[in-house]
Computed example of a mutant assay.
Amino acid sequence: MTQPLNVVGEAREISTGVREAATLAEGLTDILADTYRLTFKTHAYHWNVEGPLFFAIHNLTEGQYEEMFAAADEIAERVRAIGQMAPMTMDQIMSNSVIEDAHTSPSAGEMCDILAKDHERVAHRLHALIKIAGEKHDPVTEDLATSRAAFHEKAAWMLKAMTAQ
């Protein structure tokens, strides 16, 4: 008999009508990786923003990184719900994400522009996942991806509005 503390997680078959769960898990893992990297980047900008827009950007980014941190758990749990394993290493997060680190200290306006572009990239990837989820008969992932896309599109709009001239 296996001791409960010695159980190791593994991918499992599910029978809910979802087709090609591994393919869906790959898409979800990409989104999870993007979410984690963008959460950190947003949090770092939150800590380091300065200038006349400090208060507005500081507050806006706080709401965004808090929302994304909570979303990461929901995305990972969806991967598990379709019988697959969620990422367990930072290497997996880094290699699956399209979000890139900034190698300089951007101005407040540049922070908004960079983050807006990152949110747009994630929204674009989510649109692809929505299509795939529909094709694979997974309305739950389709709904999750639609909700996440709406968040990222709104975040991009709000960040762009901060520096509109």
Rank of each mutant, 00 (worst) to 15 (best):
A108C: 03
E13C: 01
G83M: 09
A76L: 02
A164Q: 15
T163P: 08
E120I: 06
E77C: 09
V79F: 03
G27W: 02
E13N: 07
Y65A: 05
T35A: 02
P4N: 10
A33N: 03
A33I: 00
H137M: 15
R19L: 11
A155W: 05
A11D: 13
F69A: 13
E13K: 06
G9H: 12
Y45M: 07
K117A: 12
A72E: 09
H119P: 09
H43C: 03
K154C: 03
A155R: 13
P52I: 15
A21P: 11
H58V: 02
D34Y: 04
D113A: 15
N6Q: 15
M85T: 11
I130P: 11
H127T: 13
R121M: 05
M88D: 08
K41F: 00
A155E: 08
Q3I: 11
H43I: 04
R12P: 01
S105K: 15
K117C: 09
D138L: 04
L53M: 13
A102K: 15
D30V: 01
G27T: 03
T2W: 13
M90H: 02
E153Y: 07
E135P: 06
A44I: 07
Y36W: 06
A123D: 11
A161R: 13
M94C: 03
W157E: 11
E142Q: 14
H58P: 00
M88W: 05
D73W: 01
E142G: 14
A11L: 11
V8Q: 14
N96T: 06
T23H: 12
L28W: 07
S107I: 04
R121Q: 10
V79H: 05
M68V: 03
W157G: 08
H103V: 05
M158T: 07
E77F: 07
T29K: 02
H127I: 08
I57P: 04
Y36P: 02
G83H: 13
T42E: 03
P87V: 00
L126S: 05
S97V: 00
V140I: 12
E62A: 12
L32F: 04
A33K: 03
L5G: 14
A44Q: 15
H46N: 05
H124Y: 11
D143F: 02
D34C: 06
F54H: 10
I75T: 08
G63D: 10
M88T: 07
E62D: 14
A161K: 13
D118I: 04
L144I: 02
G51K: 09
Q84W: 06
A164Y: 13
Q165Y: 12
I14V: 10
